[in-house]
Amino acid sequence: RAAMNNIQQLTMILNSAADKPSETLIKYFNNCTVNPTDSILKRVENLEHIFKKKFAEAVGQGCAEIGSQRYKLGVRLYYRVMESMLKSEEERLSVQNFSQLLNDNIFHTSLLACALEVVMATYGRNASQSDGASAETDLSFPWILNVFDLKAFDFYKVIESFIKAEPSLTREMIKHLERCEHRIMESLAWQSGSPLFELIKQSKERESQSDQPEPTAT
């Protein structure tokens, strides 16, 4: 019943949401120094092909249509959360030009991945409860990171803002995202190739440039 309630709540939120950027979002896009509209729409389209292909490979071609439905819901949530995030950033920073953020490919891919993770977890939980061996269970986190070739560390960056921007998330979903965070913090962000190592290196370099030479702390 809890799983069904989560699905019901999600579809209720997203039934009224649009599959494309709202008027408000378009205004934010138009305010940018470099208008990101085309690249955002193109990215959503490109990632749709990738998502649907990987989904069908995982669950079987017979269930490919489910992948389309999940992606559609994910895109609605992505636009909805993006709008809410930009509104609070506008309030916080008193600026309307978010050109750098809105032209950042990693930001968008991470945000869309997070929206899809919420959708997949909402439905996946239901599937795994009714059928322990369900193929859908295999699509749980960090599956989405591999699909979009996304670094766990980058995905981590959107989670907290996502939770703040979407007040309708169920308690269960917040807990799920928190579990994803913990997994990233404890292991995924420390795998080879993670951007975290380069950031630590840069931070150390800045430290050694600005400070007097001091013995390195453990």
């Binding site: 920073l93 750098q100 953020l101 930001f107 959107v158 907290e160």
Partner: peptide
């Protein structure tokens, strides 16, 4: 939400995390 541990500091948001001005 009350159980969630927020890590961003006061006055910090998504813009800072993606190195935006």
């Amino acid at each position: 939400v009350q159980d969630y541990h927020f890590g961003l500091e006061e006055g910090e948001g998504i813009s800072e995390l993606f190195d935006c001005d």
